[in-house]
């Protein structure tokens, strides 16, 4: 099968995985803060493991270029937060309107998905092993994102299908961005370390800015450390033996 199709399918798979976040709400109406904190810690470990793979692969192609790409990736996330922050003020007067709050959350999650889409596409440029690992990591990472969206929507009366549907929508930039990112690194191999660095840097920044602070809010540092060490270790092993 054409490699482009595989890239598109991988991006689609990661987007669909976000919908799985709604699944627990088929059985319960609410998930406690500790459960969400645990999901954030697990996702942080998997994302750090994926970033390790991206940065290690990138540095094999060019260390300085990878670090430069990483800085640009982190800066892109900072910029997206700033832009969303400005939009957030516009929504401030609408607090308490459940639909608007859910829409804002979906918007935030959608903006995050851009870098993840680039990561999937660039990883395919780095070889099959890296591609499978990054696709898997991002797919698993997307589940708690869907969980977070559903945790806001479901208790406010949204249907299970709406929770799953909006979760998937928030990740649709992944298949859309994965394709041009893959084509770019295939056409200009010199871009590969920059691309791998970009994806790794963006993911590390997201872990540091979003996932870890949320995890520390509900779990003791010792538990956060244990969950991340175990999931990061599993990701490294997966990458090494896959």
């Amino acid at each position: 099968m054409n490699e482009l199709v595989w890239v598109g399918l991988a991006g689609l798979l990661t987007a669909l995985a976000t919908g799985l976040g709604a699944l627990p709400f088929a059985f319960v109406r609410r998930i406690g803060a500790r459960g969400i904190g645990l999901a954030h810690a697990l996702a942080a470990g998997l994302m750090l493991g994926a970033s390790f793979g991206l940065l290690a692969e990138g540095s094999a192609h060019g260390l300085v270029q990878t670090v430069v790409g990483g800085a640009i990736g982190a800066a892109a996330i900072v910029l997206s937060h700033r832009l969303l922050g400005e939009h957030g003020h516009g929504f401030a007067g609408l607090q308490g309107e459940h639909g608007r709050r859910a829409a804002l959350l979906v918007l935030v999650m959608t903006a995050h998905s851009f870098a993840e889409g680039v990561a999937v596409g660039v990883a395919f440029g780095g070889g099959q092993k890296l591609a499978v690992m990054i696709t898997l990591a991002i797919a698993v990472h997307n589940v708690p994102e869907g969980l977070a969206i559903s945790a806001v929507m479901r208790p406010r009366g949204a249907s299970l299908a709406a929770c799953a549907g909006w979760s998937v929508v928030s990740s649709l930039p992944q298949p859309v961005l994965a394709l041009p990112a893959f084509v770019a690194v295939e056409q200009a191999r010199a871009l590969l370390p920059y691309g791998l660095g970009f994806a790794g840097g963006a993911m590390v920044y997201m872990v540091l800015f979003e996932l870890l602070p949320e995890a520390y809010e509900t779990l003791a540092p010792r538990r956060v450390g244990a969950v991340i060490s175990a999931s990061l270790g599993a990701m490294i092993l997966l990458q090494h033996y896959l």
Binding site: S59, A74, H81, L208, F209, L212, P213, P221, I228
Partner: peptide, 30 residues
């Protein structure tokens, strides 16, 4: 994960912490 990062978030806030940690890690790898 258990000592320095939680203290960094408490004192520096999440945005500054994420920026400083990323920059320092990148500089060391360089």
């Amino acid at each position: 994960l258990t000592e320095t990062l939680p203290a960094a978030y408490r004192g520096g806030g999440r945005a500054a912490t994420a920026a400083v940690v990323s920059a320092a890690a990148g500089a060391l790898i360089l």
